[in-house]
Amino acid sequence: MRKLFFVLLAVFVVFLAGCSKEELPASDNGTKGNDLGSEKAKTEVPEKMEGKETIFPLTGIETDEEVDNRIISVMVNNHPAARPQSGLSEADIVFEILAEGMITRLLAFYQSEMPDVIGPVRSAREYYFELANGYDALYVYHGAANFVNDMIANRGINYLDGAIYDNDGNLFKRESFRKAPHNSYLLLDAVYDMAEGKGYETAASHEPLEFLANEEVENLSGETKKHVKIVYSNNPSWIVEYSYDEANGNYSRSSDGEQTIELNSEEPIVLDNVFIVETSHEVIDDAGRRAVDMESGGSAYLIQEGHVQEVQWENREGRIVPVKDGELVGFVPGKTWINVVPTNPGMQQSVTFSN
């Protein structure tokens, strides 16, 4: 009986040892499996799922897509004979600056949206191509004075000149419904291929501009004004107006008392930020061409959500941005038009606000 007891005890001990051996690896495997699973999960989570949103750099609008296409800038004709234009509704940022005489010209930046056709396209100016270069954008224009073309080549600007590809049917097309020089249109689909053919980079990682968060947009400060008028000349063709639509939360634009629209669709041009900057302009030749100082900074108005703020503008790393007390002021996410006005007569005389 005693012997049987010891035999049973030995069997029981062996059984317990066996159970322990089987359970320990299971426990270890479970722990290691969880650790490995965690490491694997970390490496496989996309960057934007780790609290980093992907936005278009010039608009601040969120996107699920990778944003790596290089910005394209285009010189757009703004002569009355060239209106309405094509492609402006899809531009992320548009600069409006005097070209010669009292005629303004537009430099439109494209990245988040790519229209099929943009134009009419006009000639280059130094301050425009320097702006394009500051945003690391491909610069597209149609023709220029020889000394301007020399500047573009000597400064290493990445450019496509419509005078070289005039009416080739691939990059540029002349339309019969308008007369030259108001009838040259860019076929945007060909830009990256043509740029690659010249050895230019067409992919880029652009640093985003400063944008306001939703709560900051809702609590914007500044005087409440719903209408702004910019007088480049007493000629109505060069009077620009922006009107705030409270229901839609955006601004519409007009020139010469007519709403700015797309040529084919007649879709109104709407935007979210109006940024008016004042700087020195100097006529440099008999043709009325100007030198425009886009480096020194100065007085500015930032107009958003029906509010007007007096700010300063600065050129920071090539980009024209609003600043207050030395700090960047954010744009409302969306599209922006930047109107550049001369210091003579100055913003106080050329810009007025009303309700």
Results as ranks from 00 to 15, higher is better:
M1N: 13
M1A: 14
R2S: 09
L4Y: 15
F6K: 15
L9W: 10
L9M: 06
V14M: 04
F15K: 15
L16N: 02
L16Y: 10
G18N: 11
G18V: 10
G18L: 10
K21M: 15
L24C: 08
S27T: 12
G30T: 09
K32V: 12
G33V: 12
N34H: 13
N34K: 07
D35P: 12
G37N: 06
G37H: 09
G37V: 08
K40S: 15
T43A: 13
K52N: 05
K52A: 07
F56K: 03
L58V: 05
T59M: 02
E62M: 12
D64S: 12
I72A: 06
A81H: 09
L88S: 00
D92W: 01
L98E: 08
L98P: 05
M102A: 15
T104L: 00
L106E: 04
Q111A: 06
S112Q: 01
S112W: 00
E113Q: 11
P115Y: 07
R122E: 05
S123L: 09
S123M: 05
R125I: 14
N133K: 04
A137R: 02
L138K: 02
A144K: 01
N146D: 15
N149R: 10
N158M: 15
N158A: 10
L160S: 02
L160Y: 09
D161W: 03
G162R: 03
Y165R: 06
N167K: 10
G169F: 14
K173V: 13
R174A: 09
P181E: 09
P181I: 01
L187G: 04
L187N: 11
D193W: 08
M194A: 12
E201D: 15
E201P: 09
P208T: 07
P208F: 02
L212M: 10
L212F: 05
N214A: 12
E218F: 05
L220T: 05
S221N: 15
T224H: 02
S233L: 08
W238D: 03
S243F: 09
S252V: 04
S255V: 06
D256W: 12
E258G: 09
Q259Y: 07
I261W: 08
S265Y: 14
S265W: 06
S265I: 11
V270W: 04
L271K: 01
E278K: 03
E278S: 03
H281V: 02
I284A: 08
A287G: 14
G288Y: 13
R289V: 10
V292L: 08
D293S: 05
E295Y: 04
G297C: 06
A300K: 00
L302A: 01
Q304R: 02
Q304T: 03
G306H: 01
K324Y: 08
E327K: 07
L328H: 01
V329C: 02
V329T: 09
V340D: 00
F353L: 03
F353G: 03
N355E: 15
